[in-house]
């Protein structure tokens, strides 16, 4: 069983306070933001604070789907010339002491395109990445991408949105694996207009056609919204709310890094607590 499938199965077997099953908490951080040294200890700390899966950003110069917070994160990361190879290295290191927590890489297509799909899949799989979210790779263009990932047992994770039609949802069932990422609003990452009842409705619609866990992301900024979304989904993704903390300092020294890591851990613990109370 893949790490992702194992983790979702594990959570399903665990009960929340009111008898529902547990929902995965998925923090998103950008590799190399704000410094190359912070990412590895931060990943371990996030697991300790209650993260079930880690979404690791690969920076791109033109992050069209991201709001100002994650755009700035990509810029900071690129100041250190963070590349896909750096993402692979940090995952390799992480796997030395954590072989269970699934890692999903999230980024844009061009760095993968330039590396070549097969070479990318081979290296991503070898270092211990479990799934890949490529924001600007829709299923219609994924004819060579999906088989390349599958061949290396990587899950191609696709997005659905409030604008996704029934027909598009049905089609996704053929290509997606791992989980499905539901973008909870029309907008970019970090927007603050989460409408929980419309999320519930859409998630229910998606479940009619797709038998995969459903993660919800974009616009979840605090414990309260995390708990609400946890009630109707299998995973809650939190990005901008923690990436904001990367501006506290530039993460060059150990004491600086501890400040950022502590702040992010606190946010995640609070979310974990609220989600488990649902």
């Amino acid at each position: 069983m893949s790490r992702l499938a194992a983790r979702f199965a594990e959570l399903k077997a665990q009960k929340t306070k009111n008898g529902g099953h547990k929902t995965a908490l998925i923090p998103y951080v950008m590799t190399g933001d704000p410094s190359p040294e912070i990412t590895l200890p931060l990943m371990h700390a996030m697991v300790a604070a209650g993260a079930d899966i880690i979404e690791l950003g690969a920076p791109f110069s033109d992050p069209m789907a991201d709001g100002p917070v994650i755009q700035a994160a990509a810029e900071r990361s690129l100041e250190h010339n963070t590349s896909l190879h750096d993402v692979f290295s940090v995952v390799t290191e992480f796997r030395k002491t954590d072989d269970k927590t699934p890692i999903v890489m999230m980024g844009y297509l061009n760095p993968i395109e330039v590396m070549g799909y097969q070479s990318f899949a081979q290296q991503a799989s070898a270092c211990g990445i479990d799934g890949v979210i490529t924001v600007d790779m829709p299923p219609v263009e994924a004819g060579e991408y999906v088989p390349a990932l599958r061949a290396k047992e990587l899950d191609p994770i696709f997005l659905l949105a409030p604008t996704s039609t029934e027909e598009r949802i049905k089609k996704l069932a053929d290509v997606a694996s791992g989980f499905v990422y539901y973008v909870s609003l029309k907008g970019v990452t970090g927007a603050a207009t989460l409408d929980v009842s419309s999320v519930e409705e859409k998630v229910a619609q998606i479940r009619q056609y797709i038998d995969l866990p459903i993660g919800v992301g974009f616009g979840i900024g605090d414990a309260e919204s995390a708990a609400k979304v946890a009630g109707c989904s299998d995973a809650v993704v939190v990005g901008s709310a923690i990436v904001k903390k990367m501006t506290l300092n530039d993460g060059k020294t150990e004491p600086e890094r501890s400040i950022i890591i502590k702040e992010i851990s606190d946010i995640l613990s609070a979310m974990r607590g609220a989600m488990d109370d649902v």
């Binding site: 829709p138 263009e141 997005l159 659905l160 949105a161």
Partner: peptide, 19 residues
């Protein structure tokens, strides 16, 4: 689907696909 040989296509985020 908008291809000129291997070029072109629709590499857009899901939210825009319907539009």
């Amino acid at each position: 689907r908008g291809h000129f040989g291997v070029y072109g296509g629709i590499f857009a985020s899901e939210t825009l696909m319907q539009a």
